[in-house]
Measured scan of single mutants.
Amino acid sequence: MSIQHFRVALIPFFAAFCLPVFAHPETLVKVKDAEDQLGARVGYIELDLNSGKILESFRPEERFPMMSTFKVLLCGAVLSRVDAGQEQLGRRIHYSQNDLVEYSPVTEKHLTDGMTVRELCSAAITMSDNTAANLLLTTIGGPKELTAFLHNMGDHVTRLDRWEPELNEAIPNDERDTTMPAAMATTLRKLLTGELLTLASRQQLIDWMEADKVAGPLLRSALPAGWFIADKSGAGERGSRGIIAALGPDGKPSRIVVIYTTGSQATMDERNRQIAEIGASLIKHW
């Protein structure tokens, strides 16, 4: 067993022997301040990774656009098919120029040779490549099948209805392509620590998230040296922004954090800054 596999296998073990965790309302004060600064709703939840206990939450059962955070769930569904012998990570998928959609920095470079399922998941999570996500959605049967996968996990809230990039439209009061912070946090925890996926697939999923290259201005910008984070960000229309993450000190994750916002007129930089400040408060009061 590799060191990384050992780390993920012992996530519940280490967490069980940690000192009790206590909620700190100071972080919620910052979440509410972010709402004021952005002029928009902000949803927040913080779960203990081992027990699933909610440590703090704000608007945990209000719907927010998922945006690209759905790509972690998508690759979880792909990995479940791999575990069941219905898919192979090494299978190569070929596609054409007509398949390319807006923001496809990886797939646009491989029109000639195609990409493997493993490479597509890596591109979808680490670079948020939209064509990679659409190609992977095709392998599982489309958005409705991802929703069905989530329902089978016990998540009857999260739903995907459309493809990239239309799913980022974020129309107010439109339930399409949305989740709730509580539902997303619980589902992410199941994917990373539950028995739904094999140990190898859980490790692969967290490795992809740990290698995320496009979430630097968010929670990662607030992390002290030595902290662990595996995350996936999302951005959408109407001032929408979000991030889902597993993080913790001492090089291992111990909490799940989900943050979503929508309806702001603020710039992307300002949305990023507010999420980073929430992260800084979380870490300060850990």
Rank of each mutant, 00 (worst) to 15 (best):
A266E: 03
A84P: 08
Q203G: 12
G234V: 06
T267S: 10
T193I: 02
Y260Q: 01
S240Q: 08
H285L: 03
G236K: 00
G114V: 11
D113P: 08
K109N: 08
K232W: 11
F58Q: 12
I206E: 08
P105M: 15
E26C: 14
D250Q: 02
T261P: 05
T267A: 12
I54M: 06
T139K: 14
G216W: 01
S122H: 13
D48Q: 00
R59F: 15
L111Q: 01
I244M: 12
G234A: 07
M184Y: 03
A245H: 02
S201V: 11
L223C: 10
L136F: 01
F70R: 04
K32L: 02
S51W: 11
M153Y: 14
S122D: 06
T27V: 07
A132N: 03
G242C: 01
T69R: 05
I93M: 13
S201H: 11
W227Q: 02
A215M: 02
M184E: 05
D250S: 10
T187Y: 08
G39S: 13
V82F: 09
Y103T: 03
E119Q: 14
G43R: 10
S104A: 12
T261W: 08
I256H: 02
H156Q: 05
D48V: 00
Q86H: 07
P172W: 09
R63A: 04
D129A: 06
G85S: 03
R63F: 01
I54P: 04
Q37M: 09
G279P: 10
P249K: 03
G114T: 06
I93S: 12
V257H: 01
L146M: 00
K252S: 04
T116N: 03
R92C: 08
A230T: 03
M115A: 01
A40M: 07
Y260T: 00
R273I: 15
F228E: 11
L197G: 09
P181N: 08
S80L: 03
S221E: 01
S221C: 07
K284T: 04
A123Y: 00
G142K: 08
T179F: 01
S68H: 03
I54H: 06
P105R: 14
A215N: 02
L74Y: 14
G263T: 03
R162S: 09
A170P: 11
H156M: 07
Q88L: 12
I171R: 02
E210D: 12
E108F: 01
A200F: 07
L28Y: 11
V78N: 15
R220C: 08
L55V: 06
M209E: 06
T193Q: 06
H156E: 02
W227H: 02
S240V: 11
S57F: 11
L120F: 01
M184P: 05
D36E: 08
V258L: 08
Y44N: 11
P172Y: 06
G76D: 07
T69G: 03
E119G: 15
C75T: 07
E169P: 01
R271T: 05
A200W: 05
Q203I: 11
V78R: 10
Q37Y: 10
L135G: 13
A222F: 15
G154I: 06
R159A: 04
W227D: 01
V106H: 11
A222Q: 02
A246N: 08
D83C: 00
F70Y: 09
K213S: 03
Q88C: 07
H110Q: 13
D99C: 15
W286M: 04
E175W: 01
N173G: 07
L199Q: 01
G76I: 09
E61K: 13
K252L: 01
I93R: 14
P105G: 10
V31E: 07
L197S: 07
V42P: 00
R162N: 12
L79C: 06
D129L: 11
W163L: 08
P60M: 10
E195K: 13
C121G: 03
P217T: 09
F228R: 12
T178K: 14
V257L: 07
V117T: 02
K53E: 01
M153C: 13
T262Y: 12
L146D: 12
E61D: 05
N152A: 07
G39D: 06
Y95D: 03
V258K: 12
L38S: 06
G236H: 10
L188A: 03
K109H: 01
L219N: 05
L247D: 04
L146I: 05
L247Y: 08
G194R: 06
E26M: 10
L167A: 10
C121K: 09
N98Q: 07
T179V: 10
N173V: 06
T126F: 12
S57M: 00
D250T: 03
A132Y: 15
D250G: 04
R118P: 15
R271S: 10
N130P: 01
K144M: 10
A40L: 04
I93G: 12
C75G: 07
K30W: 14
P249L: 10
R255N: 06
L120K: 04
I45E: 03
L73A: 08
T158D: 15
I256E: 12
N152P: 12
Q274A: 02
N130Q: 05
P165I: 02
M153S: 12
E166M: 02
E56Y: 05
R59Y: 14
E270R: 10
I140V: 15
L49D: 15
E46V: 06
S57K: 13
E210R: 13
Y44L: 11
R176W: 00
R81I: 05
A84F: 12
E175R: 04
A225D: 12
T261K: 08
G216Q: 13
A200K: 02
D48S: 00
G142P: 06
N168W: 07
Q265L: 13
I54T: 09
L100P: 12
A40F: 01
E119F: 11
G251N: 09
L38D: 03
T131D: 03
A77S: 07
K144P: 04
I125V: 15
S281W: 15
S68L: 01
P143H: 06
C121W: 03
A123G: 00
D177E: 12
S221N: 03
L205G: 08
I171L: 07
L135K: 12
M209Q: 13
